[in-house]
C-alpha cells in the first residue's frame, strides 16, 4: 500500500453514481498457519469495470479469488458484493447473489457431454434443479439457451461430445461458458488464457470483449498482452499484499512492478513484453 502511486480506485467508472461497488474487499486476510497467503488487502471494484490482478507465482492471487468466491473463509476482513457482506456465505450462496467464477485449472464435468455441462450450469439458479420426475431434456427453453450459448462460442457442433474429449482451448471456453450460464453480475476469471495457443488466445480475447458492458469482470492474468486489451485497471499482488494499483498502462510503468514482474519474466526468457509497452 505504501508504494501506491494512484490511490483513487474508481477510475473505471464515473464517481457520480451512488450505487455500492460490485466488490469491496476490506482488510482481507487469509493465513495458513504461519504463512500469510493474503494479507490486509483492501480493494474496490466498481460496477461494470474490467479489473486485472497480477503478481508473480505464489503472490496469493488464486487464494484471493477463493476468498472472493467462498471456497476459503478469510482469517479476518470482509468481502462485500454490491454492498452486502458475503464473507460468511458458501460458494453456492454467493453464486445466487450473482458471483460467477472460472478456475485456473479447468474444472468442467469431464465425464458429461457439453450439453449436460451447460444444462447443469443453466439450471444452477432455477428451481427446476430439484425436479425429480421430468427429464431435463424436455426443458425446451433451457436447451435452446444451451444451444445458443454453445453456438456463440463456436462450440455448436460439440454439444454431444464428452467434455473430456475437447481440446484445451475448447475446455477453457466451456469453463467461461459455465460461469456465464449462471448469469453472474460479477465474473471472476482465473487465468482464462493460460496454456492457450496464440490463435486460441485471440479467440478468448474476442470472447471477453463481447461480454456485456454491465458485467463486472475481475481477471487474474500473467499475459500483459491479454491484460492490455482486456482490462483498464490493474492491482498488483506480491507475497499476499497489495503492491500498487492503477490504470493498466500506469501500473506497467511503475518501478516496483517492473522490478517484480519483469524481473521474474526476464528469468523466464523475457516472454512477457510489459516493459516495451
Amino acid at each position: 500500500m505504501s508504494t501506491t502511486s494512484t490511490t483513487e480506485p474508481t477510475a473505471g467508472a464515473p464517481a457520480l453514481d451512488r450505487r455500492p461497488p460490485a466488490l469491496e474487499l476490506d482488510k482481507l486476510t487469509c493465513r495458513f498457519g504461519e504463512l500469510t497467503a493474503v494479507g490486509n488487502v483492501s480493494l474496490t471494484v466498481p460496477e461494470g469495470s474490467r479489473f486485472g490482478i497480477i503478481g508473480p507465482n505464489g503472490a496469493g492471487k488464486t487464494t484471493l479469488f477463493n476468498l472472493l468466491s467462498g471456497e476459503l473463509r478469510p482469517t479476518s476482513g470482509t468481502v462485500a458484493l454490491f454492498g452486502k457482506d458475503v464473507s460468511k456465505l458458501s460458494p453456492p450462496q454467493r453464486v445466487q447473489l450473482g458471483l460467477g467464477r472460472t478456475f485456473q485449472v479447468v474444472r468442467v464435468f469431464n465425464m458429461l457431454t457439453v450439453r449436460e455441462n451447460l444444462t447443469l450450469a443453466l439450471s444452477g439458479l432455477s428451481r427446476s434443479k430439484l425436479q425429480l420426475f421430468r427429464p431435463w431434456r424436455t426443458y425446451r427453453a433451457q436447451q435452446a439457451r444451451a444451444e445458443e450459448l454453445a453456438a456463440s462460442f463456436g462450440l455448436g457442433d460439440r454439444l454431444e461430445l464428452i467434455a473430456g474429449e475437447l481440446s484445451h482451448g475448447e475446455l477453457r471456453e466451456l469453463e467461461v461458458m459455465l460461469a456465464l450460464a449462471t448469469e453472474p453480475k460479477v465474473l471472476l476469471l482465473d487465468e482464462p488464457a493460460a496454456g492457450l495457443s496464440p490463435a486460441e488466445r485471440v479467440d478468448i480475447l474476442a470472447l471477453l470483449s463481447r461480454l456485456s458492458k454491465e458485467l463486472t469482470v475481475v481477471m487474474i492474468e500473467h499475459d500483459m498482452q491479454v491484460l492490455r486489451s482486456a482490462v483498464d485497471w490493474v492491482a498488483v499482488l506480491d507475497h499476499g499484499e497489495l503492491v500498487t494499483q492503477g490504470p493498466t498502462l500506469e501500473v506497467q510503468r511503475h518501478p516496483a512492478v517492473r522490478e517484480l514482474y519483469l524481473g521474474s519474466a526476464a528469468h523466464q526468457g523475457g516472454e512477457h513484453d510489459g516493459a516495451s509497452a
Binding site: P91, P92, R101, R107, F109, E116, L120, L125, T182
Partner: peptide
Amino acid sequence: LSLRGMKNNEPRLRALG
C-alpha cells in the same frame, strides 16, 4: 443430472450455485 455432476466434480457444482 445434478447427482452425476456431483459425482464428477462436486466443487464445480457448488461454484454453479
